[in-house]
Each structure stands twice: as structure tokens, then as C-alpha cells.
Write a protein that binds this DNA or RNA. Sequence first.
RNA 1: GACCCUAUGGUCUAGCGGUUAGGACACCUCCCUUUCACGGAGGUAGCCCGGGUUCGAUUCCCGGUAGGGUCGCCA
Length: 448
Amino acid sequence: MKPRVRFAPSPTGYLHIGGARTALFNWLYARHTGGTFVLRIEDTDAARNSQEAVDVILDGLRWLGLDWDEGPLTGDATGPSKGDCGPYFQSQRKANYQRRVEALLSRDLAYEHEGAIKFRMSREITVMQDLIKGEVRRELTDREAVDPDFVIMRSDGQPVFHLVNVIDDLEMNITHVIRGEDHLINTTKHIALFNAFGVKPPQYAHIPLILNGDGSKMSKRDQGASLSSYTEGGFLPEAVINYISLLGWSPKENREKMSLAETIERFDLPQILKHNARFDYEKLLWLQGEYARETTSNRFYELAVHAFAKAGVDTNQFPLDFVKAALDTCKGKFRTFNELPAYAGFYFTDIIEIDAEAAKKDFVPENKPRLEKLRDAFNAAPVFDSASLESALKETAKTLGVKAGVLVHPCRLAVTGKTSGPSLYHLLQVLGKERVMARIEKAIQTIA
RNA sequence: GACCCUAUGGUCUAGCGGUUAGGACACCUCCCUUUCACGGAGGUAGCCCGGGUUCGAUUCCCGGUAGGGUCGCCA
């Protein structure tokens, strides 16, 4: 039988990076084995659910490219879905839970207590086989020793997580439960419930957690905790996927940067690590830079233009050829697209901001005649292209008896306002003679 | 407090009963270069501690310590 796995998030208004990684591992396992990836929304807690919160999850998974074979098509709990095991919203499965609870009640496997329904839990030591952790023997905690039974239906008639999770996994024929290690201890309850329903439990694979860089628990507000920090942070989904796939899983053979196809090919449960991983933002940035460098032209332009738009710069005000040429000089030189407006904003404004520190160093009196000479040389260049400008600058430097860098730095500062950026000669060509001459002239004027 | 999981450089990891303990990110140096980035060449840095098993433990076992998780009419 082909594996059936599921990602069963609760709509809380954001998608945690750890949740995204759980979804990824489930998805990878399904794709690797030719199995089925089911998306189920655990919205039993009506108080904190909304369609918007569900959309955050659906949009996040779509952005990552984690398509589901069964599950909702929209964030509307009563809306359309695909697959034969629906509804895929727990809020729409009340009747199933009710029926199951009654079955337990009738067999005295559950009982009413203060209006709630409690499940009769065994006091025996539970031994379970986890695909990742191996054999886990669980004794009762001190509280469980007092009362091992647990609530499966609240006094207001709402079913509780443990119950619905098990019933849905059972009714959706889930074969492998791949979930965070925070559920490891819950598993004894789940196995007991499966047994009570007379069904063999699925196989469990508890994956390690993702912690902050300092080893503390990663909560909502921490850097990188929410998937939205990447979707809005100028990241490429393939970079995020690649990075989180490496957290708690190893492809062996010293591989780091891998295509999705290769990850699917290599992914399997036995290679999942047992220990938690810390989130390393720098390494993510490195992968992001690698992938950004490789983006195809049109996608690159699209993402770049979007990044400028977010920063309040409408590149559509400029000729398309100019925009493309400008962006071409930036490719491979930054990491997240959100860095781009600061990196290349000088192309799209006439009011450039000059780095004050750099100005103190480069806009000094002795550089004034040099910049004037350079201006004249540029002005006299037969063609205003990178090659001509480069030779014009180098000739000027030679004439002045200085190294090229002596002219390069003030020139860059004059036309971009910054000390680093795209290749100087290329950016000069893209900027065009008119803008370049004006900016150099302006810089000359500011020097006493 | 009880119960559970885990432990290789700062981080992600490979690995093994005998290895110069490998790779990647980050960091440092140098080269390339107009800057930055890329690329290239080097470098600093690691098997948590204590017992045991063994001719020999980073590797196997036990204990400790540390980190993480769970103990809800949340999911």
C-alpha cells in the first residue's frame, strides 16, 4: 500500500517555519514514495479560527510549492475540496466524532465526567516504535498516576484534539504520521485510542524541532519564525525549502545545495536526525544568494520590480530597457530581493544620497581637479559605453599619475552615493551620459 | 515535581570499535578585482563529563550534566 501522509495544521493566523518544515517532510515522503499528501485543517477550536487564518496556511504552502493531493481548495471550511476522505476541515466532521464517541461510551471505554467525556486510559507502561526515535518506553507521570484518563469531548460538546486527530487519521487511512517531536508523548494516548477503535495505529515518525540560534524555543515573534518573514522578506521559495530541508535531515555525501528533484530523490525517514536543530539565518542567506544568482531573467526582473515597488519605487516610470539593464548589473550581487532598493536605488532617482563618511574621504580638495579631468574625459568619450569609459578613466589616471582606484572611488560615490555597488563602468553606461555628467558635476561643486 | 527525547567546531552536519575526525555556513589571511559579490588558495575552531566493556572508545553500556519536549475541557 502506498503511504498516505498528512499535514494537519491549526489555523492560528501564521505558519510557523517548523510547521512548514513538517509539511515539507511529509510532502517529500509522499513524493519520494509515490504516496499521497493530505492537507487537513484542524479547526476544532472555533474561537480562534477564521478563513483568513486558513488562507495564510494555504498561501504559505503554495508559495513553497508544496501541493497537496487531497484537501481543501480554498480557505472556506464549507468550500470545495479534492479527495475522497473529506471534509478536510475538522469543523465539518462533527458527526463523525459524535458517532465515534458514542461507540466508545457504549463499550464503556469512555465515560461522562462533569459534563465532559473522558477516555479510560491504560495504566500500563506503553512501548511504542517510532520510525525516528526507535523504541520509546513511557511510564506514567505523577499526574497520570493519579488519573490517567483524559478528556476527549468538552462539556460544551466540542471534541478535543487527541480524539479528532486520531479519528481523522483513522478515517483518512493515514499510514505514516510525520510530526514534530512535541507530539511524541501524546502518541501513547493516540495509540490507545486507535486500539479502542479496533484499528491498527499508523507508523509514527517524530521529527526534531527547530530552535532559535541560541537554543531557545522558537516562538511566533522570533526572527524567521513565521513563513511570512520569507514571503515578504524577498526570499526565493527554493532557497527556503533547501535550507529547512537540511534542518534535522541529512542527504549525506556532503551535499548542501540541492534541487527539489534531488531532495525528493534522496529524502527518506531513516536519515532524519534525532536531535533538535538551531536556525542559522546566515546559512539561509547564503543559499538565498546562491539561488538569487541563478534566477532566470524574467523571474529576476519580476521579483526585482516587486521589491522596488514595495520600497515605494515605481520602476515602471522608466523605460523597460533601462530597468532591465540596470537590474542586470545587480544580479548575483545581493542576497534577498529586499536588499535591492538600497543597493540599486540610485538608478531610479535623481536625488541620490551621498554617504557622508565616504564623502569626507573622497570629496577632498585634491580630488576636485581629478574629477574635473575625469568629467572631461568622459565627455570626450567617442561612445558612452563601459569599454570606452573604462579606457577613458584609466587614461586619465595615467595622465594624472595615479592609480585607477583614486578616480574610481570618488566617481562611484558621485554617481551612486555609495562606496559599493554594481560594476562601475557598467553602471555608468546604464545610467547614461546625461545623468553621469550631471552627478559628477554636482559632486565637483560640493568640493570646496 | 513527574515523564520523554537528545548530545561531533559558534551553527547545520558526515563518520567510525583503531580516521591526520570530512563537508557547508560564519569568521580570519592571501589571490583575483574599480567597489561589493562571485571565484581560487590557505587558516582558527569539535567528538559534554565520569565510570564500565574492550588490546583499543568520539563510536557500545550505565550514571551525571546540559539542552529540548510533555504533563489543558489548546492544537
